[in-house]
Design a binder for these strands. Structure first.
Lengths: 254, 254
DNA sequence: GTTGTTCTGGTCGCCATGACCAGAACCATA
DNA sequence: TATGGTTCTGGTCATGGCGACCAGAACAAC
């Protein structure tokens, strides 16, 4: 049989080998769950019930089991917290192992970021009393006290999403199954903190074949009236780079 | 089966807390060391002396100590293997924890990539009999048998460098303290597998202020003659994005 | 109807960039 | 020395992407 890339030599143990001679760590996965609320980027936080950091906010996470992969652990945690089964939306972005990041023991955690569209599902799956969505701007500004090194972890997750928004088509994951171009544009504007021209945005999106698909229907007008917007749905071309590039510098910025 | 979820593990410290009730892992760091040899991208591999995977090639790595950060562990491993002290060149790109990636025990490894200019330093620091540079193309094509899941890890490292080359000014890390634009261009061409027009490349580089600095000196001509090239050195503007963008599609490819 | 709003299609101009050319400066030969 | 080959370096030209901007279309509220 041919060589396999991932070798599983189960049972091959060197004679005299002793695992205890190596430092032991606990390994956890933490999931940064991002979503859009009122055109603003929000992150799901849970309030800690016990020490350490009792009463402080934290991102959900849990221990990796020896029998599962890191991706599976993250997927499981996401499902437990939000009831959402969307492993494809999970992206690993970093590992954290500073010696005293957890006062109890040596813990190395692996950070995953999930971008969700359905806010309702989040409330349903988690123990609602302890889970809450917070504006990312508040968190990054330090206005919310976070446990462990979760502020740094969230910051890295945001940075990851910011670049992913440019190199992948991840933007459609933020919005609902059908969406208007204004909603999609709001994702870019919120994540990047920029203003995009709606007409140019439409032109760029339209030029990318198969990224979004018109449904033929129209969304009801908002409270302020206006022409009802065309409704789109996400196309299959998901990963090979979205059509919107992050503007390098604004020249006549308002 | 009765799934007692890890929900308690989320910071809930039960009475009679005992760290040993959580699964123990060994944590390692693996360093993918990349450099340029004869205009081709190479990766440093070491031959394993002991089981598992004795005799096979692997990327250097080692156990993280409880008293050091992940970055420090990677930096230490890099120094031990190559004698190079260049923590700034190290970038973490992924964590790997598949259940049976190491037959001995549960091991989660964190991958770092280092881009080095000085090949000589690599030979000096490592035990030369066991360390060797291999063309990345050979490795990715599967022509070299690698231990563990190191093929996947190397692949991810390459992918990381490919994108970093566009969004950071990392290219100057591949070349020597002084370099010609042809050498710098070769880095892009080797990592991306493209051909870049030398005149256009020069124009783009020159338009970016402070990225490279002319030294006033000139490099000796190569064996084939030709006008001696201007010598540059890396500028201080290191991180905020290089001037060269990866070409999307070639229309009149040679 | 009138006004205000948002959507949607279009034009205009700048500039980044790819393609290409020509001279300059060097090495190797005859 | 002369000539050809090679590489570097400065330049032109045209296309296309993209930002800025405008105007009509289609709705809600008054």
């Amino acid at each position: 049989m041919a060589t396999r890339t991932t070798r599983t030599a189960r049972g091959v143990k060197p004679v005299g080998y002793d695992p205890s001679q190596y430092p032991a760590f606990a390994v956890t996965v933490d999931v940064v769950i991002l979503t859009m609320v009122d055109g603003e980027l929000h992150v799901l936080l849970v309030r800690r019930a016990h020490d350490p950091f009792a009463g402080m906010w934290a991102i959900p996470g849990g221990f990796k089991l020896p029998t599962e992969t890191l991706d599976a652990a993250a997927s499981r945690e996401l499902a437990e917290e939000t009831g959402v089964d969307a492993a494809s939306l999970l992206a690993q972005f970093g590992a954290y192992g500073d010696p005293e990041r957890d006062p109890r023991m040596n813990v190395v955690t692996v950070g995953y970021v999930a971008v969700l569209r359905d806010v309702g599902a989040i409330e349903a799956g988690s123990d609602a009393a302890e889970a809450e969505l917070h504006p990312v701007l508040d968190v990054l500004a330090g206005r919310i006290e976070l446990a462990f090194d979760h502020l740094r972890i969230i910051g890295d997750a945001i940075a990851r999403v910011r670049t992913d928004l440019e190199v992948t088509g991840i933007a459609t994951a933020f919005v609902g199954p059908t969406f208007t171009l204004a909603e999609l544009r709001a994702v870019y504007e919120a994540v990047w903190g920029v203003q995009l021209d709606s007409a140019n945005f439409r032109r760029s999106v339209a030029s990318e074949q198969g990224w979004v698909i018109p449904t033929g229907r129209r969304a009801p007008s908002g409270a302020a009236g206006g022409k009802p917007a065309e409704l789109f749905k996400a196309g299959a071309a998901w990963k090979q780079g979205g059509p919107i590039r992050r503007p390098r510098s604004s020249k006549r910025g308002a």
